[in-house]
Design a protein around this nucleic acid. Structure first.
Length: 827
DNA sequence: AGGTTACTTCTATAGACAGCATGTC
DNA sequence: CTATAGAAGTAACCT
């Protein structure tokens, strides 16, 4: 079967597909067409990676749009959203508009409503439904990519519930679910009332094997001699072997999967020795440049190490890297410049990075809950192995495991090479998942009674997998009780209604438990600081229905700039060491009895959001316990909510871990350098960005909760949020509002005596130029952005004193024209 | 003494979605 | 608790 056999696609599309070289559909694609994907029929496609799943989705979406419909493509990762968007944009010349919607890449609702194809993460879709995005009703086709992730305890239930909601909104919705090969694709198909297309077919042959002794033993019985000589490791031998074997003039790249970040980094360092000796001069030059780009992006130790490896043609890849660094590495690997990547499992599920040879070096991973090493799931290892074989470059892909003894080799064959992947099991009945989704389901009107709720939940995979729904009912009842006790829901006879705050929590996409923690913390903070507000808060808690607390409202709407004196910093005096800030913060917290209402310190607020279940916590390393225990007592006054005692072991540990996270945020908001933070907390640039992102979101939510509850802390929260958002002290908040001015440039301008936007508009140009270290273009852009009448820098001389002041307190690496600490954007 | 090697002990453990308002589509 | 690799530390050995 070929594209031109299809009559349901938009005009020109079949020809375009054939022009792309798709003359004949792959067998799974043909099967999907025969099942009716291009005619609006629902299909579950359970096929290997890289066997043309995306085209199946495209056939469904394009034909649906051709019939006047609208399609949604759900992805599990933000990075995949942009990848897919780019891919689908090639249909724009046939009048198909593509839009993306994720948390950090936000398009407004109207714009999305005009798109034919929308790409979004499952959480974003869930959120859009909760917030009543009108175009959701117009959807005719939904694609769920990587649908086997419903098995994931953390995020699977969201996908499951979202699909159930979409199907409830539109009974005729075409659902196309793309899945890795799993044990029970038939159950997924049953759940979605879809036809099942199941296949092991791959466009590129995949040879799986285990390296043991001096050879790889493949699943087809063949062997390949790969001797391990003079102290060389198996992995190194295999990477070298792949590189030395030219097939069709192509040398083979390798992807090595390991179990921890540290392992990834050290393996990359070692393998750099292997790749380095196999580079030609052109490659060396290009790699040198790439290494420079990586250093430019951030100047942490991690970046240094990565740049060093990359210069030699190897790289590591894990979540500690900044988004920019990740994509630099991925792109260079696809361009065959980087010969070998050592990665944690991030890469298996992420964007497309095929390699000739995949080595799954570590097949066990530490599991804290279990307290030891656990073997990886077959499905997960298969996903990694599926990255083997570059279309158009390799005649076949090789996926290898390593064994040092016969027994292990046999076990590996048994467990991963011959084994069928596990079944996908719904994790919906877990309490944390239900907590969120029950509230959202009630708040957005999908159910108004307990029975209605259970009936809705009956549409999920969980229900279709378990004949007996008593467990689901039991957990649901527990969750309802919790939600009622926290006043997110009200129960009257059988009927369920979300309270005002319940609606807010659902819209804000908060875990209700996070919301409860935040609300308690804020109330406690208000009570301990301000008796009036405490009384109001208590009244609030007792009778919400009557509900109007007596806290002045104007303060909530005041512009944050008016609250600048809340944290008196005494002008330009500042240290890079956060210790100084700590003292100030304690003082201001203690001195809060004044008439400005309660003052919650930034640290207190950071700590509050850091201990919610919505924030991943940093590990306490050995030695950290003592450090943070000391800080715990030093800064006890700042904490919101009741601290556990030292003897409540687990709770105390959690509290300290949250304190560590909060301190990181505080350091960031005190303009501490990225590399210092990275070193102090043992994290990479990507982790800092991640923490800051999450804190921003949670503090935004906190602000709205405070507003809604009329708690007199909105200004405190807003300031803490803005400071963490821009990574600056309070006095720079005005300046960083200028486009092109980030934390570093703002600080330099401030040091040069330009303290506000207004002053920047009037400032002596030579001073501005000096503060920006003589970069004329930058200075001009900044002045333009601040709205200056005559931004031209023509003929302006650098002011030497401003330049000196600016250079003294800063470091290199900010010459990229953005002025931001460049963590790299999503693009 | 200085350096290398072989052995023991210690230490640490993957990932990453979301609000809102703006401005990067 | 059921692991593993690397780093750091230590002992043994050589020139």
């Amino acid at each position: 079967m070929r594209p031109s056999d299809l009559s349901t696609l938009p005009d020109g599309v079949p020809e375009a597909l054939e022009a792309e070289g798709i003359e004949e559909f792959y067998p799974p694609q043909t099967a999907a067409v025969e099942a009716g994907v291009a005619d609006g029929e629902s299909v579950v496609a359970s096929v290997p990676t890289a066997s043309g799943k995306t085209l199946i989705a495209e056939l469904a979406m394009l034909s649906s749009v051709a019939r006047g419909g609208k399609a949604l493509y759900i992805v599990p990762l933000r990075a995949l959203a942009s990848e897919k968007k780019t891919e689908f944009e090639r249909w724009e010349r046939f009048g198909i508009d593509v839009g993306v919607s994720t948390g950090n890449y936000q398009s407004d609702g109207e714009w999305l409503a005009s798109r034919d194809i929308i790409v979004a993460t499952s959480e974003k879709v869930d959120s859009l439904i909760r917030n009543g995005a009108p175009w959701v009703n117009d959807l005719t086709c939904v694609v769920a990519d990587e649908v086997h992730l419903v098995d994931d305890g953390g995020r699977g239930p969201t996908l499951e519930v979202t699909l159930a909601k979409l199907r409830k909104i539109n009974r005729d919705l075409q659902v196309v679910a793309l899945s890795a090969t799993v044990g029970n694709a038939d159950e997924v198909a049953d759940w979605l009332d879809a036809a099942l297309v199941e296949s092991d077919w791959r466009p590129i042959e995949l040879k799986m094997g285990v390296h043991y002794g001096n050879a790889v033993n493949f699943d087809d019985g063949s062997q390949r001699e790969v001797p391990v000589g003079n102290g060389q490791k198996q992995t190194a031998a295999l990477v070298a072997d792949a590189l030395d074997e030219e097939v069709d003039g192509q040398r083979g790249s390798s992807l090595v999967f390991v179990s921890s970040r540290r392992n990834a980094e050290s393996a990359a360092r070692r393998l750099a020795g292997v790749t380095e000796s196999r580079l030609d001069p052109d490659e060396q030059a290009a790699l040198e440049e790439l290494a420079a780009d990586i250093r430019d992006d951030s100047d942490t130790d991690t970046s240094e190490d990565l740049a060093d490896c990359v210069r030699d043609g190897a790289a590591f890849h894990h979540a500690g890297l900044s988004a920019t660094q990740r994509s630099l590495v991925e792109d260079a690997f696809r361009d065959r410049l980087v010969k070998c990547i050592c990665a944690t499992p991030t890469l298996a599920a992420g964007v497309n990075t095929p390699a000739r040879r995949v080595v799954v070096r570590d097949w066990k991973r530490y599991d804290g809950e279990f307290g030891g090493m656990q073997p990886l799931d077959t499905l997960e290892v298969h996903q990694m192995m599926g990255r083997a074989g570059r279309p158009g470059l390799d005649p076949y892909g090789e996926a290898l495991l390593l064994a040092t003894d016969r027994d292990t080799m046999d076990e590996l064959f048994e467990r991963y090479v011959w084994a069928e992947p596990e079944d996908v099991r719904s994790k919906l009945a877990a309490e944390p998942a239900l907590r969120t989704h029950v509230l959202a389901t009630v708040a957005s009107g999908f159910a108004t009674t307990r029975d209605g709720l259970l009936e809705f939940l009956d549409r999920t995979l969980y229900a279709s997998q378990t004949g007996d729904d008593s467990r689901l009912a039991a957990v649901t009842d527990r969750v309802l009780e919790y939600l009622e006790a926290n006043e997110f829901l009200e129960r009257d006879d059988g009927s369920l209604t979300a309270t005002g705050i319940g609606h807010t929590v659902s819209r804000l996409y908060l875990d209700p438990m996070s919301a409860a923690e935040i609300i308690d913390g804020l109330r406690e903070g208000v009570e301990s600081d301000d008796d009036d507000a405490a009384a109001a808060a208590t009244a609030n808690r007792r009778s919400r229905a009557a509900g109007d607390a007596e806290v002045p409202e104007d303060i909530a709407d005041a512009d944050f700039v008016t609250g600048n004196d809340l944290l008196d910093d005494g002008g330009g005096e500042r240290t890079d060491d956060a210790g100084g800030d700590a003292e100030e913060a304690v003082e201001s917290a203690a001195a809060a009895d004044g008439d400005d209402g309660p003052t919650l310190s930034p640290l207190g607020l950071y700590h509050l959001v850091a201990r919610t279940p919505d924030m991943y916590q940093l590990y306490l390393k050995s030695g950290d316990r003592a450090t943070y225990e000391e800080q715990f007592y030093e800064r006890e006054a700042e904490f919101l909510g009741h601290a556990p005692s030292e003897f409540e072991d687990v709770a105390f540990e959690d509290w300290l871990a949250a304190l560590k996270t909060a301190r990181l945020l505080e350091d960031w908001a005190s303009e501490l350098d990225e590399d210092t933070i990275a070193e102090r907390y043992g994290v990479g640039p990507g982790d800092i960005r991640g923490k800051v992102d999450t804190a921003e979101w949670l503090l935004g939510a906190t602000e709205q909760l405070a507003n809604e509850l009329d708690l007199d802390v909105v200004l405190d929260v807003r300031e803490a949020r803005k400071r963490v958002e821009d990574g600056v002290h309070e006095e720079l908040l005005d300046l960083v509002g200028v486009r092109g001015v980030g934390r570093k440039r703002a600080r330099r301008l401030f040091e040069a005596g330009i303290e506000t936007r207004a002053e920047l508009r009037e400032a002596d140009k030579s001073v501005v130029l000096g503060a920006l270290r003589g970069r004329e273009q930058t200075a001009e852009n900044v002045l333009k952005a601040v709205g200056r009448q005559d931004p031209s820098m023509e003929g302006v001389e650098t002011d030497a004193s401003a330049s000196a002041a600016a250079t003294a307190g800063s470091e290199s690496g900010d010459d990229d024209g953005s002025g931001q600490a460049t963590f790299g954007d999503f693009s």
